[in-house]
């Protein structure tokens, strides 16, 4: 009896809404977005503050090491795929990683026991955020591709390797942002549903699955943030590929990148089992 009745209390995709200028705004998502953003900024400025304090001995602080780890890794990825550390792509990927990571982890902060299992809903469990991030990424990718190859060169790419594939190429460009957004959303949203389901378990038994799931969710948070940033870099690489290299070489590299992206996406999708409803 107790197992079925509270089930109805779980509201999927429910948000605290306010209407303003004829548009609906999810207030809870906005608040948690701000919290995540502010946390990232605090961490960032903390790192740079201690960074500027003693530059002579070059000994990094712990926060600086954390940032350097991510910045260094992203720079390496960007350099490997784009040929140089692009002044826009690298900061974009770093910002995406940290922001998504903190947004994902917000879900783990607990509230009063047995009321909710999380204090703030992860803003990444709202498609508005993930669509926005994917939009930023894809618009940047298209702009980068056009700037690298020229308008003609970029659109010529849609007719390659065969003009017949034009619909598929266009579809691919549209699917990229949607998958980017929905992968992140799905994983984190599923995590939230799992937490809600675990919240239904009586308190004396709840702690074990709660701890286990939150530990797992923390790892998923990292993986999803990493995947999003990595795919962003790879999409930039695909858009800019072949404007200077040899034709067959470029094709080969492009194929490899596509494969890499597909593998990365597959890994991330497998990471979260779909919770049983």
């Amino acid at each position: 009896m107790t197992g079925l009745v509270p089930m109805a209390d779980i509201k999927i995709g429910h948000h605290v809404e306010r209407t303003f200028l004829g548009m609906t705004f999810n207030v809870d998502t906005i608040i948690s977005t701000l919290v995540a953003g502010v946390l990232v900024l605090i961490l960032g400025f903390w790192a740079t503050r201690s960074l500027t304090k003693d530059t002579e001995d070059h000994v990094p602080t712990k926060v600086q090491i954390l940032w350097e780890l991510v910045v260094g890794e992203v720079n390496k990825q960007v350099e490997d795929n784009l040929g140089k550390v692009h002044p826009f792509v690298a900061p974009l990927a770093i910002s995406l990683f940290f922001f998504i990571l903190f947004a994902n982890w917000l879900e783990l902060v607990p509230t009063k026991l047995n009321e909710h299992t999380h204090l703030l809903p992860a803003p990444t469990a709202d498609t508005n955020l993930t669509y926005a991030l994917a939009a930023v990424t894809m618009v940047s990718v298209w702009a980068y591709g056009i700037r690298q190859k020229g308008v003609k060169g970029y659109f010529k790419h849609f007719l390659e390797p065969f003009p017949v594939l034009l619909p598929l190429n266009i579809l691919e460009e549209l699917i990229k942002p949607i998958t980017l957004a929905l992968r992140l959303f799905g994983n984190i949203f599923a995590g939230g549903i799992m937490l809600a389901l675990i919240g239904l378990i009586p308190l004396y038994a709840m702690w074990a699955p709660n701890i286990l799931w939150k530990a797992f969710d923390a790892i998923i948070g990292v993986i999803q943030a990493f995947i999003f940033a990595l795919l962003t870099v790879l999409y930039f690489a695909m858009a800019g590929a072949g404007h200077e290299e040899h034709e067959s070489h470029e094709e080969h590299e492009d194929e490899q990148r596509k494969k890499k992206a597909a593998e990365a996406a597959a890994v991330s999708d497998e990471a979260t089992p779909v919770p049983a409803h």
Partner: peptide
Amino acid sequence: PNGTFFVELIAF
């Protein structure tokens, strides 16, 4: 998506 989309866009 709803209006939140634009807020998120600006925030990011």
